[in-house]
Computed example of a mutant assay.
Amino acid sequence: MSETNTTTGKTAGRTGRGVKIALGLSLAVNLLILGMIGGAVLNGRPDGGPGERIDIARTLALGPMGRALERGDRNAIIERVGQDREELRGHRADLLEATLAFARAVRAEPFDREAAEAALEMQRGQVVALQARGHGALLDQLETMSAAERAAFSERLVEALDRHRPGPDRR
């Protein structure tokens, strides 16, 4: 049986609505940031200035694959994707709007789960579209690489991932 707090009248062990909303918002923001941080290591000197190049890199969300690339290959991917900067800006603006829509839905009283869910779905669609562009550019770059370059990339990727694998099952 659960115990009831005599001062609040709430049952111990139940999570309050505000905590659930905060956790949901935190999860959404963390997912957004995770995707953006994945490409944060891609850097260099863009046509549009350092800030824009980093923005493009973050948008790609390649994570450890981006870190395993040689600098020249990363730069080529950024250049390839960055050729259509207006489309990228549109995707990023849509992602921002979806995130703001989620924040508005979380703030609504009473809480509108359907609106929050719809905003997260819009957000997810934008993240997936941007990541697909990054993956396409990565595959395009891999096609330009020699077998030895691809093998070296693969080795760096596996090494990076091995650092996160627990226990004795490491390579």
Rank of each mutant, 00 (worst) to 15 (best):
S146E: 05
R74H: 04
E86W: 04
T8D: 02
R124A: 14
L138P: 00
V128S: 01
R170V: 13
E79R: 13
V29K: 09
V127P: 00
Q126P: 00
I37V: 15
N5Y: 02
Q141I: 04
G35L: 05
A105K: 09
E117L: 11
R71F: 12
F102A: 15
P110S: 11
L25Y: 10
A98G: 04
T59W: 04
S26E: 12
A105N: 09
T144P: 00
L157Y: 10
N5H: 08
A105L: 09
D94E: 12
D169Q: 11
P110R: 14
M1E: 07
A57E: 11
I33V: 14
I56R: 01
M36N: 05
E87F: 09
L62R: 02
K10V: 07
G66Y: 01
S146M: 03
Q131A: 08
E121G: 01
R113Y: 14
M65Q: 12
M36A: 08
G16W: 03
A118Y: 02
R17G: 10
R170I: 11
A68F: 01
D140L: 03
L142K: 06
R74E: 12
R107K: 15
Q131L: 07
L25Q: 09
G49E: 10
Q83F: 02
R74D: 02
L120T: 09
A28P: 00
R113Q: 13
P46W: 08
Q83P: 01
A12R: 10
L42W: 01
M65L: 14
N30T: 12
L139W: 05
A160T: 15
K10Q: 10
F102P: 01
E109R: 14
A101C: 08
M145G: 00
I37D: 12
